[in-house]
Design a protein around this nucleic acid. Structure first.
Lengths: 191, 191
DNA sequence: ATGATTTCTTGATATTTGTCAAGAGCCAGG
DNA sequence: CCTGGCTCTTGACAAATATCAAGAAATCAT
């Protein structure tokens, strides 16, 4: 019987060998973050990757004139600053807990060990990141081809549950519109 | 002395072992495409990856009501439908030559051999795709935080040469605006 | 070169989205 | 419970962008 963590690893990386899953999950440890606290801050070292067992985190950055939410990560998904984690560069994003959060976390040094331990690891990683790449391609497409209202509807259809769990202003930002526009579209769609 | 192809491979994958570069480049073959012809079409198999030695290609998709240009690929860059190439799914994008094009092409079966031949190949691939991921992250950020005019300026600063080499309507689409808006911003910036 | 296409520009106007300001609703902590 | 601070909504208005239509400019094929 798989643990929840093993289930996540399996669904993301699709590890094949029977013993591997168990070996991989040994490297993860449980971690909790209180609502409002930071998983990561811009400029700091991004040296861990986590799967979210419960709760939500917001990935955002502060510009001169506003805060831009890049993404909201929820149960079952992973969270890290990928650029910083892979290339050991300063983190590009702030990652803050929107609720109390429970994580399964692996730090970089252990993560690197997986590459030695699991023969196919780098290949699985490649497939994993390629899937992330495709998601971003699709997201760019929504900005090239859809209006704010269409982006709202598209996102709503696929993420209904988020709308009563996180401050709507963050969803608005993530969809590339102001909270006021978001609110007006929302009103229109509810009726 | 490195060939141009070896230079591309090296700059994208940073292959370390001396003999490797040469071995890898053996798998590529030269290919040309005439202006207007397709490198790939939506729905077909994406079974090759190419580096562009000269010329330009446009990555786009046709929606009900308009054509959306996702990207324009130029000399020194690579071109493929990544999702299709990696997962053997039908191509998501059309890729059409904007000019006569010279390519160094590797097909999927040979590409897969590289994984056996070069020990670190999958790791290099991972790093390569992660860099692509980061580029898309940045691009999404431009849509979340910038106006059409800011996106124009930002892109123009980094890609001046494109502006007198490809139909501007495609750049407009790629930046998420109409050709008319693009034209007006352009006029404003020229004066 | 020349005519036919395509691409780009421009103007008038409509629509979408943003800004600013005020108020309403909703919690969380005392 | 209250109350202060968020968050969300709403209205009036401004700014940005899209649409439509026409003409100018550039490009292409012969």
């Amino acid at each position: 019987m798989m643990t929840e963590l093993e289930h996540y690893i399996s669904s993301y990386f699709g590890v094949a060998q029977p013993g591997d899953l168990d070996a991989i999950s040994q490297f993860f440890h449980r971690q909790t973050i209180k609502k409002g606290d930071y998983f990561l801050e811009t400029g700091k070292a991004s040296n861990r990757l986590s799967f979210i067992q419960s709760g939500m985190l917001r990935v955002y950055v502060q510009t001169e004139d506003k805060e831009v939410t890049q993404w909201i990560s929820t149960k079952g998904y992973f969270v890290t600053d990928l650029a910083g984690f892979v290339f050991e560069t300063p983190a590009r994003w702030n990652i803050q807990a929107l609720t109390d959060v429970e994580l399964f976390t692996i730090n970089r040094s252990d993560y690197i060990k997986l590459g030695h331990l699991i023969p196919k690891w780098h290949e699985l990683e490649k497939l994993f990141i390629t899937r992330c790449f495709i998601i971003l391609e699709d997201r760019i497409f929504t900005h090239l081809s859809m209006t704010a209202e269409e982006r709202y509807n598209f996102f709503f259809e696929n993420n209904k549950e988020l709308f009563n769990q996180v401050p709507l202003q963050y969803i608005a930002s993530m969809l590339g519109m102001t909270p006021e526009t978001f609110s007006r579209i929302r009103k229109k769609q509810l009726s």
